[in-house]
Design a binder for these strands. Structure first.
Lengths: 254, 254
DNA sequence: CATTGACCTTCACGTTGCGTAAAGGTGTAA
DNA sequence: TTACACCTTTACGCAACGTGAAGGTCAATG
């Protein structure tokens, strides 16, 4: 079976320009040139093209593909392993980017609802949101991307009134927590109410609430200095108190 | 505060070439040009550059950044949302690539151990591995990337004897399963032995065995025609029988 | 037989975001 | 004055083709 350039291009789903380019860089030369100067491809070339396209789908650059398929002694396995590493770190980079964009969108939209408040307050909020985001990354590793993406999507699609509700809830948590802290009893009614409010607040941000995640977040409030600073701003020890209350509330310890 | 091009480049951590390029494409013009033709940047330009670099970190192309920061009416939020979508699908694409590379490496290395066997057999094996891979994608969504990556890494690092062990185990599963199938009792000793072998076999591929995942995979053997075809090749109903045995073995139903 | 239209060829520039010379002017300290 | 660090513009290079442009070739049709 012989193919002209267009026949092969139709067969393989690539452009004729691509085939000419592959000829030019000598990764795929035609079997022969006919008397009119036309490129004629044979069975060998079809197979080779399929190989090339396969490796290309894997994201390998053409020069590496060339080495793989031209040199029979070339260590394809090593090349693939190396490429795998690159893809992995690329995905990590992408994850960071996505988290960053999510955060930026949130901050941008938050800014709109925040114009009346002081900048300092805004910064504090942003700080916590940032960390919430970081915790998101940990969830991401434990429960997969979809959960976090959906949750972030949820925040991004919140309307003004939902934003307001979240702010009101956050405020309510703070006052209730402050009252509860005075009782020194994380199992008491007030503390448990704070934990419950915190759950309600969380559910505005998370699509799928789980006790494990709630308890885990509570622990992070203690472990991460920036969270601790936020919750301890009025009374040192509040973050720890909240964690204890949530652990009792969820019946879980991390 | 005024900056020459190099001062600004040192401050911002970009090359002077970059700054000249930004001047050229009019995304960041210097505040003024001094009598010698030098570019002089001021405070405004520093801030603007920071904005540019920020959006660049998000992966936005320069022309879009230009629109965002030059047109005050430009809908930055919409642009970010759109960009977010792009990043998300990019990551999906990356996930596919990684799975594909993993698979290719496995097949490549599998081929070496398979040279003696028939091609047809090889194809069947490849088919099942492919699906195992697909199931891997479902795990990925449920348990995050790390688990699957580690598991694949494990396969990739298996040596010859481990490969052989896997093949032997697979063979043993098949014969045991065939015997067990005759008893028609998925709770019987033989069937439970098959399930246990299957677990051992799985543990060669998965880093973290869990009853849920094992039971889930068993269910997939019935749901996915290609798995079913593989296990039913001698006796129709074997895939279903194996699922029942595993569900009893794990004490779980999906 | 000539024409038409599909197909082929070889240039060659455009894309993105700069890196990297090359060739030459400027500022300042020794 | 000389050296040296700094500045300028110009322009090619990179990856992997897309997209014309200008011009030959082939098969079928009027």
């Amino acid at each position: 079976m012989e193919y002209t350039i267009q026949k092969l291009s139709l067969l393989a789903g690539v452009s004729t320009r691509t085939l000419r380019y592959y000829d030019e860089i000598a990764i795929l030369k035609p079997a022969r040139i006919n008397s009119s100067g036309y490129r004629i491809y044979g069975k060998t070339e079809v197979n080779r093209l399929q190989q090339i396209l396969f490796y290309k789908e894997l994201g390998l650059p053409l020069d590496q593909i060339k080495e793989i398929i031209t040199s029979p002694t070339f260590n394809a396995a090593a090349a693939l392993h190396e490429h795998r590493e690159k893809l992995l770190s690329k995905r990590q980079q992408l994850d960071r980017l996505i988290a960053n964009v999510d955060q930026t969108i949130a901050v941008n939209e938050g800014r709109i609802t925040m114009t009346d408040k002081e900048k300092f307050e805004g910064f504090k909020k942003q700080m916590v949101e940032e960390n919430e985001q970081k915790y998101g990354k940990e969830i991401r590793e434990k429960y997969g991307n979809n959960a976090v993406d959906q949750s972030n999507e949820k925040v991004l699609n919140m309307n003004q009134s939902e934003h307001d509700e979240a702010a009101k809830l956050a405020e309510e948590i703070n006052t209730t927590l402050a009252e509860a802290f005075k009782t020194s009893d994380p199992a008491g009614d007030l503390a448990q109410k704070a934990a419950d409010l915190h759950k309600k607040w969380l559910m505005l941000y998370w699509n799928n609430y789980s006790k494990e995640a709630h308890a885990g977040l509570a622990q992070m409030y203690v472990d991460d200095k920036r969270f601790t600073a936020y919750y301890d701003k009025e009374q040192p020890g509040t973050a720890e108190f909240l964690r204890d209350a949530i652990h009792i509330y969820t019946g879980m310890k991390i």
